[in-house]
Design a protein around this nucleic acid. Structure first.
Lengths: 228, 228, 228, 228
DNA sequence: TATGAATGAGAATTCATTCAT
DNA sequence: TATGAATGAATTCTCATTCAT
């Protein structure tokens, strides 16, 4: 089933009142976006099973019934939220323009971007968790799953190749593995921040701690790709 | 609230008393462990909110009421499961005996151990996720949180120091950051395996893929700590 | 917490709108009143702890879920029922118009009214019992507690004063004490009717017995207030 | 079914160890009394439906199973508690020796006794409430119900007769009605103390308020029985 | 006489979802 | 397009009571 909000079957607007029709349509879009945003926050905060349709409606300031009108059921809503989240990060990644930078700078920039994106979008982390707890079956069903294939991998491959050619990078680095590693360095620290803070007894999100983590991550990744 | 089952464990039956068949269903300690194991699996599979007390009872082969008898409520049971999981991994870590190995070998061994532990204990990953989704409040409440402070950090600090002294390692490596990085490299790959597989279109858990990932992880971590 | 049903009552349907059959099950105010009445009977019969939400729903002919929709939880429902009961008796008291009667007649009338109200509203007695068993905490929480302050006390004070002035009543009678005494004479007999009947071996609620009790009560109260 | 604690069928004590048997028996009696006392307090505090067998065991400091051993089930235990309560008040009444006092003094003494007994035994009031909420069916079942028939009624009849003969009391006073009235005056005030305090806005149990109530009660009852 | 372990039936409450307008 | 009313199916948790020793 498609997870795109279905266009509610409404009576075709009579030709004489196009403006009103437009108005309606904009309201509809606005409502859907309100719901999606509210749902994203709710799912991020409580996970799929813990999220409450009532709370989503309340967050959105809309009637609960409307959620069903646009998104059919909780799971479809969750899929729609996931797609939105993936689209958002892919859009952000595309702003990066790494191809114009020196290889080492590009890598550094990517690490920094990943770190900052996760910091600014904590919901992305928990949504990803939830999706995987549910075996990513929502993703499989989605026709867009493959589209999500980040163009970053190709971008990263190109950077690695440039670096290898100019002698600054070691060879044989798999861009997919590297991409996952960069994400993992940032993700684990942030996603498990509460447990780590509790165990190690200090706040891992203080400005100083954040700076240190980013610096460490850059060192690890560059330490790996740079020809020694 | 303590997460220890309220009824004190009985001393194990003296060896001279033959264990009769009936005893099986009257052994408090055994029942508690059955519940804990069942709960661990259920929580790992569905998360805290998605887990069902009914299913836990069924998995344990025990009356649902008994869960409440020993663990009071779902959340306490979850706490008890978490403590068990932490204790298990800490116990495993303590078998490592890294201090006797050459620094680079020790680091390599630690990466490998982490990777294998996560592979063999996939429930640990989702439990960690769930705990953090719930803001690790379960951990905070636990008096044992601090005990969990992995002795591995000190062990790792010693290894790094040894490596630095013998000239093989770079200086200035923070053992806590390194520990988190090692965990993160393995964790992200495995925890988000479903999403990653869907996006990148191939099975990340094939034997070959596993081998490649471990190899990459070792390269990244050693690439970082080794003096170049 | 307020005990008012959270959903504001809708304005009653304008007279011009014909009440269709379907409306019956879609009338919020009616549903709430059905629930309240059913709950009153259930609480009166079984007390707060003994009352069953299932039975209340059944008595009301409504879905159990709807009770929670309007009243949140058992205790709030109980509070709402109590408020209704207090409101009802206060409303009835206000119909009395004692101020226009001769003092002795007014007192007699009040005794009679109390007796008859308790007889016709046996639920009032058990609700009062239940409320007090639970230390009237429901009342304390209610903002309306003070409103319940029966205007009867002032009315009674005025009657006593009139009687004292015209020489028929003794002086120094505390209207609050008298009010409680009148209530107590009727209440104990009715509320503990079962025990008393069992102990004394005859039916205390036969028409003859009722008449005798009322007569006795009037004698006691008048014997007290009348100047001898 | 009898509500008397059944004598647990125990092996007859061997003739050689009578002391131990006595000991056992005393322990048994002690346990039963501990249970009864605990149950009385629990039932008084929460009513029959609200009482918890677990809490009773805890209050008694005994294993829950033992309650069932001695009292079979909750309802039987409640009956036993009721019988104990009735026996207690009857015993206290019998200490009164009203027959030796002047009629008016005897009446006054009875009012005072009732007031004080209720004050000192608040559990009696709630137990009576609970019994009647459950339609006193526990009492009906009890073979002792009739025994509870307070000898006070006869005592009261004698007093009234003495007063009538010596010219101090009015004639035609029904001792049963009077007995109920005396109880009702005290009972309503104390039993509904919480509601009354909340409604009238002051503490009805302050020493001063108690004194005033007793004084009022005496006035009411004497005002009624004394020949004017 | 005493007790810890265990349980089935039930009770309050929750939740996604649908109805009717 | 929007909404308040209503519901069935769970779901967590409770409770009196029994088991086994």
């Amino acid at each position: 089933m498609s997870t795109t909000p279905r266009t509610p079957r409404r009576d075709p607007a009579p030709a004489s009142v196009p403006v009103v029709a437009e108005q309606r349509s904009r309201d509809a879009e606005r409502s859907q976006m309100l719901i999606l945003t509210a749902a994203r926050d709710e799912f991020a905060e409580y996970g799929l099973a813990g999220a409450r349709m009532d709370r989503i409606a309340e967050r959105a300031g809309l009637n609960k019934r409307l959620i069903y009108y646009y998104f059919d059921e909780k799971e479809s809503l969750f899929e729609a939220v996931l797609e939105l989240a993936y689209r958002d990060i892919r859009d952000a990644e595309q702003q990066l323009n790494l191809q114009e930078m020196a290889p080492a700078d590009a890598i550094k920039r990517l690490v920094q971007f990943t770190w900052e994106y996760y910091l600014e979008h904590p919901e992305f982390l928990t949504l990803l968790n939830s999706a995987n707890l549910h075996k990513a079956r929502h993703l499989h069903q989605s026709q867009r799953a493959r589209e999500l294939n980040s163009p970053l991998i190709e971008m990263l491959a190109a950077i690695l190749e440039r670096g290898r050619k100019d002698g600054s990078f070691r060879g044989g680095v798999d861009p997919l593995q590297l991409y996952i590693s960069i994400a993992g360095l940032a993700y684990f620290y942030l996603s498990n921040n509460h447990t780590l803070s509790a165990i190690f007894g200090h706040d891992l999100l203080s400005p100083k701690a954040r700076q240190e983590r980013l610096s460490h991550m850059v060192d690890v990744i560059l330490g790996y790709v740079l020809r020694s």
